[in-house]
Simulated scan of single mutants.
Amino acid sequence: MVSIRDISIKCGVSVSTVSKALNGYKDVSEETRRLVLKTAKELGYVPNAHARALKTNRTFTLGILFVDDQNNGLTHLYFSHVLNSFKSEAEENGYNITFIHKRWGKQIITLLQNCKFRGIEGVCIACVEPNDPEVQELAKSDVPVVSIDYIFPGCGCVLSDNRNDMAELVRYVYSMGHRKIAFIHGTDSYVTQQRIEGYVSTLRELGLEVRQEYMLESLYTNPYTTKKATEKLLQLEDRPTCILLPDDVSAFGAIEAIQEAGLKIPDDISIAGYDGVIYSRLISPRLTTVRQDTDKIGREAAKLLIYNIEHPQNPKLEPIIVKGELLTNQSVGLV
């Protein structure tokens, strides 16, 4: 493995000069800096992360805490894109990422202990049970935390504009002539609460009745539970003309229930999804949905976390709101 000493011999300068040039110190001439960097590249020099950590007392490591209730892990169609853009932004700024958990070898430890033992400088919390005591302990600790789609007091956060995006979707469905608009929402969470608020407030704004029988719960990204909820709506004597769904993946369950009932989309009943994942473009008829800007959400979370790590005396705690985009496709028809 190529060392700093190898570079210093090749360039004819001291080891300390090479170190300063590689680490961006200003007391090295531009000519020497260019020579050192050029030589390091030619020799295939790779910085020793352990040595860097010892010297700077920093690991440049960001932790990710991610557990979804469906155990989709990194196959989660929404969060996988968010975390990928988080990773890209972190790496572009010289940071590495790792997932944090409750194990240290064979020993069970707390999430905060895991961060401390591994020298994690900051954590992105995404899709977890926020009331978990260990999550609360981590959010209240001196480890900088940025959450996605949830607000922890004293922490930075990046939020999808769930309330206003849902309101825009309801207004669009209304503009297509629908007055009986049902909503199969996800299980209780900050995101769900915001979407329900957007749905309810917009119905009232439009002079429509908020009908409890039109509001049913389903697991996120679960076609089976969404199918069951859709079947209940279709069995109502005064059934809805449009059903808003928890997400695009769940739309497969709704479509199956509607087809088994002998109905056609959008001729007999309309549906709309949420998230804008690739499946929304594969469904026939193409799904009307709200596309969340996963690239921006992930990148903004990484930028915010890095800023708060590097500016501990003046962290940014104001929520960053990321607007979605309404995609009007074929699954919502005119009434």
Rank of each mutant, 00 (worst) to 15 (best):
L327Y: 04
Y95K: 00
I243T: 09
Y172M: 06
V67F: 12
I9S: 00
Y199L: 02
G198F: 02
S250M: 05
A302E: 03
K228D: 12
S331H: 11
S160Y: 02
K55L: 08
Y78E: 10
N84L: 09
K87D: 12
E256H: 10
D149P: 03
E209C: 08
V277W: 01
D248P: 06
A51C: 10
P285S: 08
T17S: 14
H76A: 01
Y274L: 10
V128D: 11
R118D: 04
V158D: 02
A302M: 08
E42I: 02
Y307K: 15
S19D: 04
R5F: 10
T61R: 07
E91V: 09
V335Q: 14
Y95M: 09
M166Q: 13
V123C: 05
Q212P: 01
C242D: 09
D69R: 12
P315T: 08
R103S: 14
K303E: 12
D6P: 02
Q70I: 08
K180H: 14
L234C: 04
E205G: 05
S80W: 08
K87M: 13
S284K: 14
H101I: 03
L169T: 10
Y224C: 03
F86N: 02
L83Q: 05
V82G: 00
K296C: 04
S189A: 12
N57K: 15
Y307R: 15
E137G: 03
Q70R: 15
Y174G: 06
K316T: 11
D275L: 03
V249F: 06
R286L: 13
E256N: 13
D275Y: 07
F252L: 15
I108K: 14
W104C: 06
K227V: 01
